[in-house]
Design a protein around this nucleic acid. Structure first.
Length: 156
DNA sequence: GCCAACGTTGGC
DNA sequence: GCCAACGTTGGC
């Protein structure tokens, strides 16, 4: 199963919001970048993703989610009252997509961006690329295991 | 708040 | 198709 990383700003929508949903399940919408959208559409039911908090005091990975519904047209793009409204996206020809995710678990501690930068074995991780701004990105199985191993090296 | 990096837009 | 201007992202 492929692995992914999903970014969100906790002040807008973070792991606490997801955890508060019924069964910890919610729609992951609002992605308005073509490359990120293409990754969304490549996700398959059962894939797992790190949940990453950005634009906050301690940017980092805070949890793991599971993809429970594959890509479908993002309804927020059709809603004139939504900040992500895009009149170029229509139900007949949708431009933007969403998936449904379920919170699998919170990590026992935040794996901060700083820690990821310091850790060895994460060369090539898209999150660490200079100027990276993608909100949806793939994670290789090797990187996935390496990141989880950081929890054992420094338990929370 | 600053600013580097990047994607998108639109004039030509 | 080029590219400057602009808006956004996101760490610090």
């Amino acid at each position: 199963m492929p692995y992914w990383l999903l970014k969100s700003e906790p002040a807008v929508y973070g792991i606490d919001h997801l955890a508060a949903r019924p069964r910890g399940t919610d729609r992951w919408d609002g992605v308005r970048n073509y490359q990120a959208r293409n990754f969304l559409r490549a996700m398959r039911r059962g894939d797992r993703a790190f949940l990453y908090h950005s634009s906050c005091s301690r940017p980092g990975i805070v949890g793991i989610v599971r993809i429970v519904r594959e890509a479908y047209p993002d309804p927020t793009a059709f809603d004139p009252g939504d900040p992500g409204y895009d009149p170029r996206s229509t139900p007949e020809a949708p431009r933007w997509y969403a998936v449904d995710v379920q919170l699998e678990r919170r990590l026992p501690r935040v794996i901060t961006l700083a820690e990821l930068r310091e850790a060895g074995g994460l060369e090539g991780l898209a999150l660490l690329r200079r100027g990276n701004r993608l909100s949806v990105m793939p994670v290789t199985p090797g990187h996935w295991r390496r990141i989880l191993a950081l929890l054992e090296e420094r338990p929370g």
